[in-house]
Design a binder for these strands. Structure first.
Length: 860
RNA sequence: GCCCGCGUGGUGGAAUGGUAGACACAAGAGACUUAAAAUCUCUGGACCGAGAGGUCGUGCCGGUUCGAGUCCGGCCGCGGGUACCA
């Protein structure tokens, strides 16, 4: 401990500021095109500017930073940008709740978050930063929209929204709680509006097929997208009506069950239902009942099954004497297939529930091969063998898949049906009836209809005031709709007075191309092709698993659309070469068990507002009891966020970075607890002291060879961990190596070299500490510029190896043998082993399994 | 409802089908110290046994395998997504 002066004490506050300044001065993280170096683009999903950096952000950006710094040290030209996904509802909600303007709220939050991020010492090129609400960004997005419109990738059609009949506004799904509007409390209805759509469904097959090429994406994400796109082969055909009216087209993925048909079901939004609605007050009342509730798939799928017998009869295609009733059913979606089905209750859960409720026939067409009795609907996997008793086109034992194909062939041969491939994926509705988003750059003209704005008139900027006064957000509805002057404009085509589109774009549009914009963030076109050509694709994309479907699918669509419109090269049709989905940072939710707020909604408390008292969790100030809801996604509305700034100010950024990486595997959710942070700090302090001692050491020692071997093993193991996102495993190895170094009696030079390697291996995770001890140890230049150490293969070869001996799969002893000992020699040693001779008792083993370098198993 | 994950000591977690519990947190014991802090050393899955050792053990039930935390089937619980939260 002697000789450790004040100079060599670990003082994170000082050294972190010092090295951040050094990196700044050297422009270390500024990304500049350099044809002589391989480029590497690492990107973390950019944050929504909620105003508070939370632990999930720190974890996400630290992981990206480890990759970025590691790639820098392996000779790559790294692009590592940061921005803000800044449009969205919370800004408008804040304006509604406490006055102010969404724009002011958002930019002030961005300033705060940048201030909170900078101390983390992330290797970000801040010169490329932008927010999606910057007019320079959304103006280019409008240009992109016009190009997509020009290429036929955008169109208008009707779609349903959540309608609050009291506030007379459209509600987001999140604003519907238990089927009621969150402010008015009124029962929500589904209502149709004309909206803008991207033609993503045209690319269903392409988006599905190229999932196979995304080798460096998690299999689960590809599977989720595959299921979401939902390709299916089925049969489309018409049910002839007994009254001679136009046939009802249905699409079914299970034509093999046609002999089990019980009724024909149509959606409440089906043209026939709409016609009946106009004619028949009973149908109108029923359809109105069906339209209650929100638009989410979950709400529709879990709603109680409702049906109405229209009285219409249709003829069964296989037997003209067999008549089926036509019901309107609330679980049938107009968006999928033809909006009409035939129901086979014996082999579909929803049909079964419906048929049971309305006492309709339930006729099985196949049964389990093993003859087991079936409760409810029998719905085996499509590759499972079943025995058909009333199959259409098939008989006997076969799989559902083969039976479907056979029945499609039979219907086609008979000429009354057609095999059709359909996708579940729907077109992307981008219209939002809200203020704080990118205005859709079109104009409505009485004479010319819907006219695109001229590119030279872009950007269509959001108005800040209305009539010289701040926009009033306390009034429900879209302020753009009632804006006195912004709406009025002249038609780009004929010049007559016209009105702007007041819908703004879904915020998913903003986040579907920001990665491309980062390659040339100040270009006066959406992208600069030379920059895109150099920097694209994103080599490593990192973000939450909650984005597995929508954001990632929309981005894949946009990359293709930008290729079609000439804004991205061919190679960028799949924009993310590798994807890593990290787990979420979760935390218990503290819900007040004694009261609700004025509107009857639950009250949530922050972690620092509650404490344990006599085994119960209570609010510190009031003593009110708390219901603890364990482990949920940190969310602003639930108040269960933890502030990382406290840790940074107490222990420094390196401690926070080390802790978030060490505690949990990156892909798994992490439950935030404060206890580990202090331990991380202690460890870094220890590393600093060990390095300082190594720097001051003199003379010869013992065991240099051993330390050298351990050093090279550490290089191998830590590198492997970093490359495979096993950051927690890398850190475990670093703990081990630190202990080895601390105990080593090796000579001063060997210790110093080992400490320098330790600094380098830690540098992606704790970059400030690493720079400081690098300097202490006499390292050349900045550690951030030093090349990554390479393990010497010769140093990794082990002379001997311990083999466990199992008898019948249970461990009964072990032997230590030379690593290259032949199998036969190992067998001899094993058969002579005490535990083995005892167990064999003179008999011969049935089998002897020797896995070289691993294990020996004796089967008796 | 549907799609996708996850479940291992008191805790976070480790383990290409090959010694389950690495590494750490918390805890306990000890060293140093007048004392404390700091630091260092040691012990911790359960049960039986004085010990050597044995039995059980990765949410539950079953299967494949010489061998299963890992693969397969069926459950239970929790989490994410479910197209207008981002």
């Amino acid at each position: 401990m002697k000789g450790i002066s004040r100079m060599t004490r670990y003082t994170p506050a000082e050294i972190e500021a010092k090295w951040q300044e050094a990196w700044d001065k050297a422009d270390t993280f500024k990304a500049v095109r350099d044809p002589n170096k391989p480029k590497y683009y690492v990107l973390e999903m950019f944050p929504y500017p909620s105003g508070k950096l939370h632990m999930g952000h720190v974890r996400n950006y630290t992981m990206g930073d480890v990759i970025a710094r590691y790639k820098m040290s392996t000779g790559h030209n790294v692009l590592h940008p940061m921005g803000f996904d800044a449009f969205g509802m919370p800004a408008e909600n804040a304006a509604m709740a406490s006055g102010g303007h969404p724009k002011d709220w958002t930019y002030s939050n961005i300033d705060t978050m940048v201030e909170q991020m900078k101390p983390l010492g992330l290797s970000l090129d801040w010169s490329r930063m932008f927010a999606t609400c910057d007019v320079e960004y959304y103006g280019q997005q409008q240009a992109l929209f016009l190009d997509m419109l020009d290429k036929g990738l955008v169109y208008r059609k009707n779609a349903v929204v959540n309608w609050d009949p009291v506030d007379m506004t459209v509600l987001a799904n999140e604003q519907v709680e238990g089927g009621r509007g969150w402010r008015s409390g009124a029962l929500v209805e589904r209502r149709e509006l004309t909206q803008w759509f991207f033609k993503i469904s045209d690319m269903s097959e392409e988006l599905l097929a190229s999932l196979d090429d995304l080798e460096n994406w998690p299999a689960k994400v590809r599977l989720m997208q595959e299921n979401w796109i939902g390709k299916s082969r089925g049969l489309q055909f018409g049910f002839e009506r007994v009254d001679g009216e136009e046939a009802i087209e249905v699409y079914t993925t299970r034509p093999d069950t046609l002999h089990g048909a019980s009724f024909v079901g149509i959606s409440p939004d089906h043209p026939i239902a709409k016609q009946l609605e106009a004619e028949n007050p009973d149908v109108a009342a029923f359809v109105a009942e069906c339209r209650k509730g929100g638009t989410t798939e979950e709400a529709i799928e879990t709603a109680e099954k409702l049906g109405f017998d229209t009285g219409i009869k249709v003829k069964h295609p296989l037997n003209p004497d067999w008549e089926l009733p036509v019901w309107i059913a609330n679980f049938i979606l107009m968006d999928y297939g033809t909006g009409a089905i035939f129901a086979c209750p014996a082999h579909d859960d929803r049909d079964f529930e419906f048929a049971t409720k309305y006492e309709l026939p339930i006729v099985p067409v196949f049964e389990p091969v093993n003859g087991d009795a079936v409760k409810g609907a029998y719905v085996p996997g499509k590759t499972d063998m079943v025995r058909y008793v009333k199959g259409f086109g098939v008989d006997g034992e076969t799989t559902g898949e083969d039976a479907v194909n056979a029945s499609v062939d039979a219907a086609e041969a008979a000429g009354w049906g057609e095999g059709v491939t359909k996708y579940r994926l729907r077109d992307w509705g981008l219209s939002r009836q809200r203020y704080w988003g990118c205005p859709i750059p079109v104009v409505h003209c009485d004479d010319c209809g819907v006219v695109p704005e001229k590119k030279e008139n872009l950007p269509v900027e959001l108005p800040y005031d209305e009539g010289g006064k701040p926009i009033d957000f306390s009034v429900p509805g879209n302020p753009l709709d009632r804006h006195p002057t912004w709406r009025d404009c002249s038609c780009p085509s004929c010049g007559k007075p016209a009105q702007r589109e007041t819908d703004t774009m879904d915020t998913f549009v903003d986040s579907s191309w920001y990665f491309a914009r980062f390659t040339a963030p100040r270009a006066d076109t959406p992208t600069d092709m030379a920059d895109a050509e150099y920097w694209m694709n994103v080599d490593q994309y990192i973000g939450g698993i909650e984005h597995a479907i929508l954001h990632l699918l929309y981005s894949r669509f946009f990359a293709r659309a930008m290729n079609i419109t000439g804004h991205l090269p061919d190679k960028s049709k799949e924009p993310f070469d590798a994807l890593f989905t990290q787990g979420m940072v979760t935390h218990a939710i503290y819900k007040n068990a004694e009261r609700t707020d004025d509107n009857g909604r639950a009250v949530y408390h922050y972690p620092n507002e509650v404490e344990e008292r006599d085994g119960e969790t209570v609010v510190k100030e009031t003593g009110e009891k708390i219901k603890v809801i364990p482990s949920a996604k940190m969310s602003k509305s639930k108040n269960n966020v933890v502030d990382p700034l406290a840790i940074i100010s107490a222990y420094g950024a390196d401690t926070a970075r080390w802790f978030v990486l060490s505690d949990s595997p990156p892909e798994r959710d992490v439950e935030w607890t404060a206890s580990g942070a202090e331990a991380a700090y202690k460890h870094l302090t220890r590393v600093y002291r060990i390095a300082a001692e190594a720097a001051a050491a003199t003379g010869e020692g013992k065991g240099d060879e051993d330390l050298l071997r351990e050093t090279h093993k550490a290089i191998r193991d830590v590198t492997l961990g970093v490359e495979s996102f096993g950051f927690n495993a890398s850190i475990a190895k670093l703990y081990g190596f630190t202990n080895t170094l601390a105990k080593s009696k090796a000579g001063a030079d060997t210790k110093r070299e080992a400490a320098k390697v330790l600094a380098q291996l830690m540098s992606p995770m704790t970059p400030h500490l690493a720079e400081d001890i690098w300097q202490l140890l006499g390292g050349e230049g900045l550690i951030v510029d030093a090349p990554w150490p390479v393990a010497d293969e010769a140093m990794l070869v082990e002379a001997s190896v311990t083999l466990p001996i199992q008898i019948n799969g249970k461990r009964r002893g072990e032997i230590n043998v030379a690593a290259d000992l032949p199998k036969e020699e190992i067998e001899k040693i094993v058969l002579a082993h005490d535990a083995v001779t005892k167990a064999l008792d003179g008999a011969q083993p049935k089998k002897l399994i020797v896995v070289p370098g691993r294990i020996v198993n004796v089967v008796i």
